[in-house]
Amino acid sequence: MRLPLQGELVDYQLVGTPVAHGTYEPARSRLAFAAAHVVADPLGDNSPGAPAVIDWEHTLGFRRHLWSLGLSVAEAMDTAQRGMGLDWVATQELIRRSAAEAPDGRIAVGVGTDQLTAGQHSLEAVTAAYEEQLAVAEGVGAQPILMASRALCAAASGPDDYRKVYDNLLAQSTKPVVLHWLGSMFDPALDGYWGSDDLDTAADVVVDLIAENTAKVDGIKVSLLDAAKEVALRNRLPEGVRLYTGDDFNYPELIRGDEDRHSDALLGIFAAIAPAAAAALKALDDGDLTRYDEIFAPTVPLARHIFSAPTPYYKTGIAFLAWLNGFQPGFGMVGGLQTGRSVPHLAETFRLADQAGVLTDPELATQRFRLLLATHGIDA
């Protein structure tokens, strides 16, 4: 076929061999969560600013696919378009439906403050919003992930305000939570989270918070796209507290780890490369590091492209690949976010997905992408 790459149509022959499908048991050596997206109902009004209308059959079907591969699901995270099309009403139903189907409790749930309207809010209001969402997560028996909050970032005047809110929430939680540090490249409204623009100073705040609440903190999910910063933080965590990598650029080396420690995984890219992730983790369990590297290496260029700037629109690439692979009937997203990436960007996503072996049915993927190109006036 012909792909629109670098301003011209380029002849392209698919070259990848799809990663073998199969079912897997959860990995023994690492905890691995895939942050799953939501499928928009093609009959719903999912225009920008409208309440989300979700295709529940395909949304839950995609989660069953992830569970069948041995992955756990990180539900209602930013990959599910929290703060970018998925409203709190739809989020609650998503949490309840997904938790009801999760096998062996293999689900963690994003707890945030996005039911608050845009604008300035008091710390008390922010805390109350977190508490409302924490109650929903605990009510379905899911592990809470205390998501980074735009409202808290706007309300806090310094590290002490973050400590006040998080200490309060941790005191209330009935099970250990996962903290969440999302860098400003994912959400500019989170710049200066933990009370400082300096990452090392911010890390000091986080380490102190965890050290004083170790019984209530299972781990921290870090998405800074900076492997050195993640390793430095990982090495400072108290024994038994996990570092869940959210680094969609450097995940193979961080999950593999070093002689001291390793990172577990809570990644949006795992939704796009789920069969490869499952196979790589199986190889790691088996001690076959050569195979681990062989499987993961070709997925990294794809991940770096999907999560390229402007990074918040990585969600478009996740939904695009789900559509190509037959997990949803159309390439639509809540909030109309399917327009978040250009056709040339999607063409490069297609090419890199083929080379990574994550187009599970290349014939179907090619057929569907040809249809999309045709709607944009491109004869592929």
Rank of each mutant, 00 (worst) to 15 (best):
D258E: 04
L190M: 09
H58M: 06
L289Y: 00
S68A: 12
L284Y: 00
E239C: 11
G183R: 09
A227S: 13
S342K: 09
H262R: 10
D11I: 07
V19Q: 00
D288Q: 01
L371S: 11
A279I: 07
T174S: 12
F296Q: 01
L3H: 09
E212T: 13
V140T: 01
A137T: 05
G158K: 01
Q143H: 05
P275W: 09
D288H: 00
G85A: 08
L266E: 08
T375N: 13
N213A: 01
A156Y: 02
R63N: 12
A20K: 02
P4K: 02
H58A: 03
P42T: 10
F331G: 02
A35V: 15
V111G: 08
W323V: 03
L3N: 08
G112R: 07
A274P: 00
E8H: 15
G119A: 10
G332C: 15
P252N: 09
Q143L: 07
K216D: 11
E253F: 03
F296M: 03
G195M: 09
L346H: 06
L302I: 07
A35H: 12
A148N: 07
G326Q: 05
A365V: 02
V38N: 12
R236Q: 08
G219M: 01
G110S: 10
D248H: 06
P275T: 05
A228H: 14
M185P: 15
A35K: 05
